[in-house]
């Protein structure tokens, strides 16, 4: 199959992803508590990792894929730090 069909399809589904990211960032900016904000950042980052893989296929540059693994792993670390702080009111020790 011609690869330009895949590229045209990705161009058409790109605005849906962008609107979803804008809504995630709005919830992350105005969330009433810290937990809402961290949950919104969490969901946004996992979707952003998927979006980066899709863009690396669209740009036809496979070397860009290493960034998505790093993003998905370190956002989990942020999640655990904030949960530990909320539960015990301290980090480390």
């Amino acid at each position: 199959m011609d690869f330009s069909i895949v590229q045209t399809f990705i161009i058409y589904i790109l605005p849906v992803y962008v609107v979803a990211f804008v809504l995630y960032v709005i919830r992350a900016l105005k969330g009433p508590t810290i937990s809402d904000q961290v949950l919104a950042i969490d969901a946004m980052s996992y979707d952003l990792a998927a979006f980066l893989v899709i863009l690396s296929i669209f740009f036809r540059e496979p070397i860009l894929i290493g960034t998505a693994i790093v993003l998905a792993l370190w956002i989990y670390a942020l999640d655990i730090y904030i949960a530990k702080y909320l539960e015990k009111k301290e980090v480390g020790e």
């Binding site: 937990s35 949950l39 893989v53 998505a68 998905a72 792993l73 989990y76 999640d79 949960a83 530990k84």
Partner: peptide, 23 residues
């Protein structure tokens, strides 16, 4: 790489959400 990231998301996302809800 895509399969590895999919496996990581499948493991890590529910664990993170659960830790946040518990805290």
């Amino acid at each position: 790489g895509g399969l590895a990231i999919a496996f990581l998301v499948l493991i890590l996302a529910p664990a993170g959400s659960h830790a946040l809800a518990r805290a």
